[in-house]
Design a protein around this nucleic acid. Structure first.
Lengths: 139, 139
DNA sequence: GCTATAATCTCTAGTCACTAGAGCATCAAG
DNA sequence: CTTGATGCTCTAGTGACTAGAGATTATAGC
């Protein structure tokens, strides 16, 4: 049986975060000692590691909730888990694309600025002022 | 002179967001009509477009505040603007790298799952449970 | 047994950048 | 003159925590 601090060290999830997860029902409320302290069973480490790892991979809490419910369900849950992960992968791809576009634009902006020796007006501020300079096309 | 709706249409920034920007001091409080409605001068369009464009590029509000103060300052502000943009660029690069690592890991996870025909245990859930399967190295 | 310090508890409020909604006043068009 | 759009203020909600106050309890050294 673990105290909350032990659980925190074992999973590298901060203590207040563990309590928060309990509050939102992501982690089941554990038993308490006579002095009202949380005592966790070993399974809590597994579950919390799962949560942490999924969070690190960028899954949001509701997706993790879905994944956790698939875990406890028995039966053919793999396709659902697969679908969730796949949707998430697509989201990541979109984020990467978008960030790359931003990267290019800011890079271009900086290059323009450098080439003009920055004498009169600042190119960075100019570009930001005028959306017409912008090269990305979405929304 | 514009009403808030006109300003919203001209800049594609939503009305409540404009009011929010005023509240946090990003956009100066405009004059009001006798009936208490906001009336914006043409310069507001410029400023709000600047803000919107910078937000789209992922600058956070405090960075935009810095950039705006550079704009109104006269004198050699280009190097500072450049430094802000450059720091931002580095941040974006780091985000892209991190996302790419996540992408690879999730992609690998899905590939593993597909190759195993998903009969017994789901690979996706397994990988998420066990951080040891993880291939990214930071933090 | 005593004391110091570390860990734990609950509760509230703050973060960021908005978004949503209530409930009211006012404006422009037909 | 009525209708519907637009505007106003104010409060609260979002997501995923984080920070702090103030109280209690556990542990280690003496």
């Amino acid at each position: 049986m673990f105290g909350i601090g032990d659980l925190s060290r074992a999973t590298e999830v901060k203590v207040p975060t563990i309590r928060y997860y309990e509050e939102i029902g992501l982690l089941p409320a554990p038993v308490r000692t006579a002095s009202n302290r949380r005592r966790y069973p070993p399974e809590a480490v597994q579950r919390l590691r799962f949560i942490r790892h999924a969070r690190e991979l960028g899954f949001d809490i509701s997706a993790i909730r879905d994944l956790l419910s698939l875990k406890t369900d028995d039966g053919p849950s793999c396709h659902q888990a697969d679908a969730i992960a796949r949707a998430h992968l697509e989201q990541i791809d979109r984020r990467i694309e978008r960030l790359s576009a931003l990267r290019d634009e800011i890079g271009q902006m900086l290059a323009d600025c450098a080439s003009r020796a920055c004498d009169d007006q600042c190119r960075v501020l100019e570009v930001l002022s005028d959306h017409g300079h912008c090269r990305h096309r979405e929304h």
